[in-house]
């Protein structure tokens, strides 16, 4: 049974579990777009990126995807450090530009307090997360759709673009798709970045050195807390808050 440390908390998990499983066991929310509990880990969306070092390491950390990283003895993991949050925010910015019409992606962007979108929107209908392909093959045992081509031309397709007789039209591919569900436009005009669900009202004083309080959702940390990218972190205030406790 490997024992690892996530955000300073020791946790013992079953052999074969991933770091993402371990973090979820602790109730730490790591955002994902390509992960589903019933499907094999894929590591495509990279949103579950975490900062990992060994307990005997020299302080150097690696950025790895939690869903494909097996939980091993002595791993030291930071799931919401400033570096990780910055990487996720950049990823989300790119996802929003690829599929601005997706509710799942817009919700995540709101959650991460994204206020700007620097890239031109593409309005693609696929982020190549591979959920539908894996769902069709692993859960529906059909394998009616798959990837074709490679690089920039890679796409989800049916063989020869003819609906396969293996397809039972069960709709599982649509069910898991993070892009199919369209976002609401709300009262404001159509924009690349939605942000309709940003909540500015709550105030939270619980912040630790390199982690958030993990209340889900804790908009205060994300919007007004020390982990905002555009607000410099005031370590002195964080530390004094800890000392008071």
């Amino acid at each position: 049974m490997p024992t690892l440390k996530i955000n300073g908390i020791s946790v013992e998990v079953e052999r074969g579990a991933s770091v993402l499983d371990a973090a979820r066991f602790l109730g730490i929310h790591i955002p994902t777009l390509c992960h589903d509990d019933g499907l094999t880990p894929y590591g495509a969306c990279r949103l579950c990126v975490v900062e990992v070092s060994n307990s005997n390491g020299n302080g150097r950390t690696k950025m790895l995807s939690a869903c494909t990283l097996p939980a091993e003895d002595g791993l030291v993991v930071q799931t919401h450090s400033a570096k990780v949050e910055k990487a996720r925010r950049l990823l989300l910015e790119m996802y929003v530009a690829t599929c601005p019409q997706s509710k799942t992606i817009q919700d995540l962007a709101s959650k991460y307090g994204m206020r700007q979108e620097r890239l031109a929107p593409k309005f693609d209908n696929c982020i190549q997360c591979g959920l539908c392909v894996r769902m069709c093959e692993e859960q529906m045992m059909a394998g009616a759709i798959g990837f074709a081509g490679r690089g920039a031309k890679r796409r989800v397709s049916r063989p020869f673009d003819i609906t396969s007789p293996l397809c039972r039209q069960c709709g599982a591919c649509l069910y898991v798709c993070p892009v199919c569900e369209l976002r609401c436009h709300g009262s404001s005009a159509e924009s690349t970045l939605c942000n309709g669900c940003l909540n500015f009202s709550t105030v939270c004083f619980q912040s630790y050195d390199d982690a958030m309080c993990f209340l889900d959702p804790c908009h205060a940390c994300e919007v007004g807390g020390p982990f905002r990218s555009d607000v410099p972190v005031k370590l002195s205030t964080v530390k004094s808050a800890q000392q008071e406790k």
Binding site: G143, A144, I145, A148
Partner: peptide, 10 residues
């Protein structure tokens, strides 16, 4: 599966 063959072929 034909999907896999098609995937490799493309």
């Amino acid at each position: 599966s034909l999907t896999d063959v098609y995937q490799v072929a493309t």
